[in-house]
């Protein structure tokens, strides 16, 4: 009897698996759809995707897969259900390009909406928003006049006063990679050593946690992406952290502040390429660009699209115009520098 019970349970479980898989298998093939593998959190892009569906009748399906997405695309090959990838950080776009999982697409609209330095020359990827990585400094303990460049952060006057997130994080890797691109590996390593000497604590936490530490008095300045300021100012619990700091855009007398992008590309084996291009065009156009700017406090790539009021209040600034793929290619070097210097 017990044996039969066991057999029954096995049957039930098998039936459940089959049922479950059938119930979701159907979602991946319909024509009026577009499938996205995304590094971006779905709740961030959902308003734009909903607007797209309203306008075109095309439904957007998303898998949020921040780790291993490229491996999945590679292994799925020509049968991959994905038509498009959405990423943050130029490094991940470059990884996708190097893995050969994207295909070039061009359209008049994309060319008109996105400036040439914010897209791949052959159309493998397009930037959709830009963000600057800048200094957040304590209003109480730092004067704007004390700050100047990224390079000057290694000045001994900042000893024990700087907090950063882990050197593993792609935003910090990209920043160091840009220093490698500008000054060479040896100078960049020297800079990293100087930065390490000035750290108030072992790198830890995320961008907002650094601002929280400045607020609490654990350190006096940190590096963070601009949009977190907007996010904190609109979060009841974090307003106090945000109000304890001011934003400083470094290197304004020189090359400008370090920039990164979020972007998108059409996959090499996209079965619904047409829909993917439509979505790409939609995301580069006024409505979506404005939504990005308003909701996520990022800088729109399309010229003429107004910034959000809050972002506007941080002022115009000079942005580093270096070729971002050049920065991306220096990422492994940057990680090695962090490893050698011993910034975890």
């Amino acid at each position: 009897m017990a044996g039969r019970q066991l057999a029954n349970r096995m049957l039930v479980s098998l039936a459940a698996i089959v049922g479950l898989s059938i119930s979701v298998a159907g979602t991946a093939v319909a024509d009026g759809e577009v499938n996205i593998y995304s590094y971006r959190q779905p709740f961030l892009i959902k308003p734009m995707l909903n607007a797209f569906t309203q306008q075109t009748g095309i439904k957007a399906n998303v898998v949020f897969a921040p780790k291993g997405m490229i491996e999945r695309l590679k292994r799925e090959g020509r049968n991959s259900p994905a038509d498009m990838i959405l990423t943050v950080d130029i490094g991940r776009i470059n990884d996708a390009v190097e893995a050969g999982v994207l295909q070039p697409v061009t359209s008049k609209k994309l060319a008109a909406n996105i400036p040439s330095h914010d897209r791949d020359p052959s159309g493998l990827w397009y930037a959709l928003t830009r963000r600057a990585r800048v200094v957040y400094a304590s209003r109480e303990r730092v004067k704007p006049g004390d700050l100047s460049t990224y390079e000057a952060l290694v000045d001994p006057k900042w000893k024990g006063r700087i907090c950063i997130r882990s050197s593993q994080h792609s935003y910090n890797v990209a920043l160091l990679a840009s220093l490698v691109a500008h000054h060479g590996e040896a100078k960049a390593e020297e800079w990293a050593r100087g930065l390490k000497a000035n750290l108030a604590r072992k790198p830890q936490g995320n961008d907002r946690a650094q601002v929280k530490a400045v607020f609490a008095g654990e350190c006096d300045l940190t590096l963070g992406n601009t949009y977190y300021m907007g996010k904190m100012l609109t979060n009841e619990k974090q307003i106090a952290w945000a109000e304890s700091v001011f934003l400083f855009f470094p290197n304004q007398d020189g090359r400008g502040a370090h920039m990164n992008i979020s972007g998108a590309g059409v996959t090499r084996h996209a079965a619904r390429k047409e829909n993917a291009v439509k979505l790409l065009e939609f995301l580069s156009d006024d409505l979506a660009q404005k939504m990005y700017a308003e909701q996520n406090f990022e800088y729109p790539v399309k010229p003429g699209v107004p910034w959000s009021g809050l972002v506007e209040s941080w002022g115009k600034f000079k942005a580093d115009s270096i070729d971002m793929i050049k920065v991306a290619k220096n990422r492994p070097t940057a990680i090695r520098i962090f490893d050698r210097v011993g910034i975890p």
Partner: peptide, 17 residues
């Protein structure tokens, strides 16, 4: 996160998001 089909979320992926 990596292996799931489209539009399939669990409590853990939601927390992570």
């Amino acid at each position: 996160l990596i292996l799931r089909p489209f539009n399939f979320n669990t409590l853990a992926t939601h927390v992570y998001e």
